[in-house]
Design a protein around this nucleic acid. Sequence first.
RNA 1: GGCGAGAUGGCUCAACUGGCUAGAGCAUCCGGUUCAUACCCGGAAGGUUGAGGGUUCAAGUCCCCCUCUCGCUACCA
Length: 655
Amino acid sequence: MDQKKYYITTAIAYTSGKPHIGNSYEIVLADCIARFKRKQGYEVFFQTGTDEHGQKIELKAEEAGVTPKAFVDGVAGEIKDICSCLNISYDKFIRTTDEDHEKQVQKMFKKFYEQGDIYKGSYEGLYCTPCESFWTQAQLVDGKCPDCGREVMPAKEEAYFFKMSKYADRLIEHINTHPEFIQPVSRKNEMMNNFLLPGLQDLCVSRTSFKWGIPVDFDDKHVVYVWLDALSNYITGIGYDVDGNSSDLYKKMWPADLHLIGKDIVRFHTIYWPIFLMALGEPLPKQVFGHPWLLAGDGKMSKSRGNVIYADDLAAFFGVDAVRYFMIHEMPYENDGSITWDLMTERVNADLANILGNLVNRTISMSNKYFGGVVENKNADEEVDEDLKKIAKETYAKVCSKMDELRAADSITEIFTLFKRCNKYIDETEPWVLAKDEAKKDRLATVLYNLTESITIGASLLWPFLPATAEKIVAQLNTSLRAYEDLDKFGLYANGTKVTDKPEILFARMDINDVYAEAERIAKIQKAEAGVSEESGDENAIELKLKDEITYDDFAKMQFAVGEIIKCEEVPKSKKLLCSQVKIGNTTRQIVSGIKQYYKPEEMVGKKVMVLVNLKPATLAGVVSEGMLLCAEDENGALALVTPEKDMPSGAEIC
RNA sequence: GGCGAGAUGGCUCAACUGGCUAGAGCAUCCGGUUCAUACCCGGAAGGUUGAGGGUUCAAGUCCCCCUCUCGCUACCA
């Protein structure tokens, strides 16, 4: 009988920079699934890789002063390092700069063109040369560029388009008849409501504005749109050939069983990718899962804030399996998860050190203490054993059902339920009491056997998630990981086995102060790096203290306009204030400003300034002020009025 | 603006098609225990389930409305 196959992919990582922990999460989840499926007896193919083309990379390389290829070689190397650091068991690491990939993408593009799915057209619109942007009639403001207000000209840029609409109905039909295709389902609704049902636009699938991409071989002004390039990796990586000479691997593995991707790119994977496949005449992947994000606790990560968390930094400090555990455990199914140094520490201490590590340690210690390390079932059973055995035997089925739904966090929780049950069992049986009574020696041996067996089962289940830890546990118990088809059996641990006499600590408890010190250390390094690249040599650079983030609505409450100062005088009895009459369109306002030290009244007259016009009027030194003149202020308090860069009429709104 | 999701004890979340005193983990407090990594086990406290109205024998769960948060999208800074 043919072995069941399972083809799983992650999104390929964009090589514009080293991925932070939020980007690394996906591959750990994929790795757990892949390992679990292998244990279940599937022939698994697990592919990941890097997406290496595009304008952004071209620019980054230019900044770095290297060729795009050299640049992506560097980042791809970093990504591979992170994979090996995290113990990722991928079968193939594809790069979109691989020669065979590029060749197939070119062939696909040509095939699409020849069969009429791609046509040559043009971006047509109104072009603003200084802004390098196309606008539609509706976007124009007073017939001019909405960005700069200058004249726009009708213009055309040649491009290739893919006829999405041709396949839209088939795709809608597929999605409706395959409810499992897009997961979680909330994503399915978004795709249907926003794109498919309103009618799919044709997709522009070539670019002429940059060079770092796969050239269209029959029209080398163009490079292939990065998404068509990137998505194809799922088939080119396993040997797809447009001309029908696909590899055996491809024939066996395609369609993919699961594309694991971030929720931000669901659209590309559930609309464009299936349509490309339809155009190729290939079957669609069985499932696309758009997972949520793992975010740094309080918001965005940035190097200048020193709060970027990288998987390899964490692994170096907490250990690889602790990081894997955290990522899997903390990752919810539909909502974003968060990671902080505190949460990480809590998980390591509470779950890994206390519940699991301590359990293994105390069990082995007792075997050594009471029986010289020899574990033997004397069959002195008691009723209290039944519940432990029942849970040990049932856990596999529970984990399977959670994993079938891709609920890795729940799976790992089920495994820990077994470990917790073991701890309770120790309390119920009180081995240290049994040890005092020679007549209860057999019972004591049986209790320790039951514990050792349960831990072996638990460790075997844990392997896909924490492979190194699972292997350490069974090594200490001097046994091997259990085959998954035997996980519903209890009592396979070989009688008379001698466990290690020196149990190694699996996870050391972390001191929160040490953790903070490490976080501080990393933050310093990051800030230094960010500082060097942005403000090299400028020690006097002002450090901008960021206020709380506001929404656009907050901003929109403020109204600014250009005002012309038509009259200005000193405010009597004040040291700092000038009182200006400011013409704003067809009105004139009186505005008091604390700028006397920097501007003379006569200098002020005639200036066009930026005014906050809807500020609540206030009385300063007995004079009413109906707005605020905006100024830049340096660290010494020196002020400079903000004026429009070009001459603008008074009353022009600033937005 | 359009579509959608959500608001549950200090924190993170659960509760299938409405049905028994709204559950679990972490944190807190109390008790037990000592084999073990000051660990483990047990117990307690803590929620008028965002506000208001309605349907029902019965509503966290359904309907209406309000407030707020989030996602996708459009548009705009």
